[in-house]
């Protein structure tokens, strides 16, 4: 802002001069100054603006205009959001993400706490194992689910071999997706929250004991209140990531076609293959919806983290 007000007079002088016939160095110099300041960043900014920013803008634009036949209107939004299958997809995605994040929190938080208080050797073992699991994702993880508790999976055959009637959740169902998602969600959550666990100092527990507090009281009055913002931040992060998972869902639910669970990501993916009813406008709207959810929850995550950092 300051630059602009300062340089405006020079432009005018330059303009007068060039009108008089002589070459004006000022706009050129300004240009060169700008280039010197920004040139090394231009390739990155080009990449980012064409492959990240422009696509997002186009999606938002298309969600309001359809494919450009109509002007700006909310018609398509009403049509798409009024449709049962789309409402279903949005509700299911939100529910699945919230359920996944909650299960992750319930299992991951104690796991992170206990691992953070382990001796060095066993801590290294668990961190290694979680690191391995966190790398297992996408189609490979979907396949691992089938190989483990699919209709001819290892665990299924084992339990049936014991003579028990056992049938795992169908591959495209919500419990199946939840179980598969947790395989990477829990390790990510634990790896992210372990650093926070060191905030809770051991002498606080000793001090609480001196004041005759039980373990339960210690956790209720000291442990949980201090860790809560970190854990909530982790919950929000898992929620955001789960909303956007595509590979695992495609591997597990994509194949059973119409009977499979409706998810926003799957709907966007399948809109490309065949969508005679709405064209890509429908997928654009679902994409914008997903964008809004993910952005909101990530902003909340930042807020939560800032609050958590008070204790650092």
């Amino acid at each position: 802002m300051k630059m602009a007000t300062l340089s405006r007079p020079y432009v005018k002088i330059g303009g007068l001069e060039s009108a008089g016939g002589s070459a004006s160095p000022s706009p050129l110099a300004r240009m060169r100054g700008w280039l010197a300041a920004w040139l090394p960043a231009i390739p990155l900014l080009l990449l980012v603006s064409t492959c990240l920013i422009a696509p997002v803008v186009v999606l938002i634009w298309q969600s309001f205009t359809g494919m450009g036949e109509t002007g700006l209107s909310l018609d398509l939004w009403f049509k798409v959001l009024g449709q049962r299958a789309n409402q279903d997809a949005i509700a299911t995605s939100l529910f699945l993400a919230a359920a996944c994040a909650t299960v992750t929190l319930i299992i991951g938080a104690p796991l992170a706490w206990m691992i953070s208080r382990m001796l060095r050797g066993s801590r290294a073992f668990w961190l290694g194992l979680l690191n391995v699991a966190a790398n297992f994702g996408g189609i490979g993880l979907a396949f691992a689910y089938m190989a483990t508790i699919g209709s001819v999976g290892m665990l299924t055959l084992m339990v049936q071999g014991l003579g028990l009637p056992f049938e795992a959740p169908r591959e495209g169902s919500l419990p199946a997706l939840l179980m598969a998602y947790e395989y990477t969600n829990i390790p990510l959550f634990v790896l992210l929250t372990i650093p926070a666990m060191s905030i809770l100092r051991d002498d606080w527990w000793e001090a609480a004991q001196v004041a005759a507090a039980t373990r339960l009281v210690f956790w209720r009055r000291i442990g949980v209140p201090i860790l809560a913002p970190f854990l909530m931040a982790g919950w929000l992060l898992i929620f955001t990531w789960t909303l956007g998972i595509y590979g695992i869902a495609y591997g597990l639910a994509g194949q059973s076609g119409a009977t499979a669970v409706h998810l926003i990501t799957l709907q966007i993916g399948s809109a490309l293959q065949s969508d005679v009813l709405f064209g890509p406008g429908r997928a654009a709207i679902l994409a914008v919806v997903l964008m809004v959810f993910a952005t909101t929850s990530l902003i909340l995550y930042r807020v939560m983290l800032r609050r958590a950092m008070r204790w650092l």
Binding site: W38, A41, L44, L45, V48, T50, C51, L52, I53, A54, P55, V56, V58, L59, Q62, T240, L243, G244, I245, Y246, T265, I268, G269, L272, P280, A283, A284, A287, L290, M291, A294, T295, L298
Partner: peptide, 27 residues
């Protein structure tokens, strides 16, 4: 340059790859 790049770097974290991919396809 920093604030511009940091905002851009938050995009792939905030938005699912499906969304970015679909947008890139349309663009």
């Amino acid at each position: 340059i920093r604030p511009v790049v940091e905002v851009a770097a938050a995009v792939p974290f905030a938005l699912p790859y499906v969304v970015i991919a679909f947008g890139l396809m349309q663009f």
